[in-house]
């Protein structure tokens, strides 16, 4: 649906919000989706709120804000983690990959994104970025091979629409293709 007609997001200048005005601001450096960013954060800002509210990277979702659902999963230094429980300041110097950073710059989707579409591994789409980041992390870890292991290792991502079996199929598909390479 390339031309779904949506009202454009209103302009929002990253790094220029209220954050720099407060005395509690702490300078940190994060490499987000390959781009090095000098940021000022308050001590209580979580990585999730930083991504969404300050950087307008709304692809990372807030489903519970307490580490109970996995919707906010991103890759931090290559490892999947719940961004809602990470204070941004404690991730100073880290590399963060969000759903926005998975596709190639030319728009070619990551194989996991392709597989999710092909296997209809989502419905409402809200847990999907977290599922995909989690699945990419899972592949890198290399601990899951069988469907049973995938199910267990993907249990940190709740899907209320119930797309679980399709999610496992999508991951198996990518695994098989990676293995064939």
């Amino acid at each position: 649906m390339a031309d779904l007609d949506l009202p454009l997001r209103q302009g929002f200048a990253p790094d220029a919000g209220i954050s720099q005005a407060l005395p509690d601001d702490i300078p940190i450096t994060l490499t987000i989706n390959g781009e090095r960013r000098e940021l000022h954060v308050r001590p209580w800002t979580t990585l999730l709120d930083l991504l969404r509210e300050d950087l307008s990277l709304y692809g990372t979702k807030k489903g519970c804000d307490h580490g109970q659902c996995g919707s906010c999963t991103v890759l931090i230094d290559g490892q999947r983690m719940n961004s809602c429980l990470a204070l941004a300041v404690t991730k100073d110097g880290c590399e963060v990959t969000t759903i926005e950073g998975l596709a190639a710059p030319d728009g070619t989707l990551h194989p996991m994104q392709e597989a999710f579409i092909e296997h209809d591994a989502f419905q409402c789409g809200y847990c999907t970025p977290g599922q995909i980041c989690s699945a990419v992390g899972l592949l890198k870890e290399g601990h899951a091979r069988t469907p049973e292991e995938i199910r267990e290792m993907m249990s940190g991502n709740i899907c209320r629409c119930g797309a679980y079996t399709n999610i496992v199929d999508a991951i198996e598909d990518v695994m098989a293709k990676e293995g064939a390479k």
């Binding site: 649906m1 390339a2 779904l4 949506l6 009202p7 997001r9 209103q10 929002f12 969404r52 307008s56 990277l57 709304y58 692809g59 990372t60 979702k61 807030k62 969000t98 759903i99 926005e100 998975l102 596709a103 989707l109 994104q113 999710f116 579409i117 092909e118 209809d120 989502f122 789409g125 809200y126 999907t128 970025p129 995909i132």
Partner: peptide, 20 residues
């Protein structure tokens, strides 16, 4: 395949709290 699939797997589909 879902026509909104690409928007959903890239995180580009905006939900209610994501309009600014």
């Amino acid at each position: 395949n879902r026509v909104d699939g690409r928007l959903k797997v890239t995180g580009a589909a905006p939900y209610a709290a994501e309009f600014t």
